[in-house]
């Protein structure tokens, strides 16, 4: 089993108001592509209810940094009581979603994801020593890159939601 370190632990965004759900999803999609992540949607649920739609998406994109290290992000998006509204912006009618949007982010640094250093107890011991002492600085750099990626994505989503506050 690979070694998994939590670098970003459950950072949250909550927004209540008007926003464009499809555009937001496109932004996340484009960001992950730009950063070289492989998108992996683990869960995608949508329920049409009397008081609006409930949408729940869990994504776990990942990116191999080297043969030994991998970045994994977990994104939990949910929208409660989503209702469609049409607003006119600059003379153009556009459809928005009015509801409560919640997003949570986790970032994990995974080492030895292929399990090559777990086949024997001696290898496992060597791996632990190398991770803790020899590759300490390298892993810290990788962790820092991952933290930046997650926080930048969170910042992009926050700035996008802020734009619609003035709609």
């Amino acid at each position: 089993m690979a070694e998994r370190m939590t670098i970003v632990d459950g950072e949250k965004i909550v927004f209540k108001g008007l926003f464009d759900m499809r555009e937001l999803y496109n932004i996340i999609d484009a960001y992950l592509w730009q950063k070289g992540f492989d998108k992996r949607v683990m869960k995608n649920e949508e329920h049409v209810q009397q008081d609006g739609k409930f949408i729940h998406v869990i994504m776990q994109p990942w990116k191999k940094i080297s043969y030994y290290v991998k970045h994994e992000i977990k994104i939990d998006l949910s929208v409660h009581h989503a209702k469609e509204e049409t607003r006119e912006i600059d003379g153009v009618k556009r459809k928005f979603t009015n509801g409560t949007f919640e997003a949570k982010f986790w970032g994990y640094l995974v080492t030895d994801y292929e399990g090559r250093w777990e086949q024997r107890p001696e290898y496992f011991f060597l791996r632990t020593i190398f991770d803790k002492f020899v590759y300490k600085l390298q892993n810290a750099n990788f962790a820092s890159l991952l933290k930046n990626d997650v926080r930048l994505m969170k910042a992009e989503i926050e700035s996008f939601l802020n734009l619609h506050r003035f709609t």
Partner: peptide
């Protein structure tokens, strides 16, 4: 394929022109 099924169901998470 999954995205086109989502678009057919008119789900909010259907993305157009995704590079994925």
């Amino acid at each position: 394929f999954k995205n086109e099924v989502e678009a057919h169901l008119k789900m909010e998470t259907a993305t157009e022109g995704s590079l994925y």
